[in-house]
Simulated scan of single mutants.
Amino acid sequence: MKKIIVVFNGINAPWHILRFATNIAKTSDAVVHGIFLMDREIKDPYPNDLALTETDVTRGTVIEEDAILESHNISMFENTCKISGVDCQVEKNVLLEELIEQSRQADLIIADTTPDFQEYSLNDILKDSHCPVCLVSINTPVVEKILFLYNGSASSKFAIEKFNDLFTNWAHLPATLLTINPSEKFENDEFLNNWLPKHFKQLDNVQLHGNEKKELVNFLNKDANNVLVVMGAFGRNIISRFFHHSLSNIILNETKVSLFTTHK
């Protein structure tokens, strides 16, 4: 791994994602590239209330205050990387389209599971990124358990293989292969029976039956701390995008786990 992009809203920096990134960078000799998105268009704050205040609150003062806060966050970013012994780069006022383009040269994007984006959403990054995306929960200061969400599709296999390529040093961690309403074809699945046990030595198999989304949320919420879920991301067709959009949103909105996802 050579380049890790960490995505911030300029004025709100969730520092747990930077700690997560620097820990990975130290073991892989990667550069941490901080992207401070240009996320919002500043408008006149509370225009109907300005006449009632004694303080001059203008568009200009809001922009100036945000610029000061962003500058402070960038300094914090650089100092944290320096203390961690990690090389870093910083860009500010980056548009989403520019982030997506830069993902072509990155190995991984890291963002918060609950970012304070105003103009963009996580789905904008998930569906268009050219590299894997890791959405990190504040409940995952370190990864101690891996959960592979598997449905037999090419996208779920690809996500697991890509995860293994990037995080070879996590192969020793306890891992769970979770299937929901598995079909009979899984009994002769070469990937399940041979590839996975070969690469992950502490692998358990769990099968759930019933409503897919309900069973998944209940299972993840039993023990959500320090858990990283690996799942295939948005495919190239509308049905695949709708399915993965729905499932990933449920994981992010109704559980406290972190999520690794990618697509070809």
Rank of each mutant, 00 (worst) to 15 (best):
K198N: 05
K198S: 10
K198V: 00
H199G: 02
H199E: 09
H199N: 13
F200A: 02
F200S: 05
F200M: 02
F200I: 06
F200H: 11
K201E: 09
K201A: 05
K201C: 04
Q202L: 11
Q202I: 06
L203N: 04
L203I: 03
D204Y: 13
D204N: 12
N205Y: 12
N205H: 06
Q207R: 14
Q207M: 07
Q207I: 00
L208N: 10
L208I: 01
L208Q: 09
H209Q: 05
H209V: 01
G210D: 00
N211H: 13
N211A: 01
E212I: 04
E212K: 13
K213F: 01
K213Q: 06
K214H: 03
E215M: 07
E215N: 03
V217Q: 10
V217R: 10
V217Y: 04
V217F: 03
N218L: 03
N218V: 01
F219Y: 07
F219N: 14
L220A: 13
L220G: 03
L220K: 09
N221R: 11
N221P: 05
N221W: 14
N221G: 04
N225W: 15
N225A: 14
N225R: 10
N226W: 07
N226P: 11
N226T: 05
V227P: 01
L228A: 05
V229M: 10
V229E: 03
V230E: 01
V230A: 14
M231C: 02
M231E: 01
M231W: 06
M231I: 14
G232I: 11
A233Y: 04
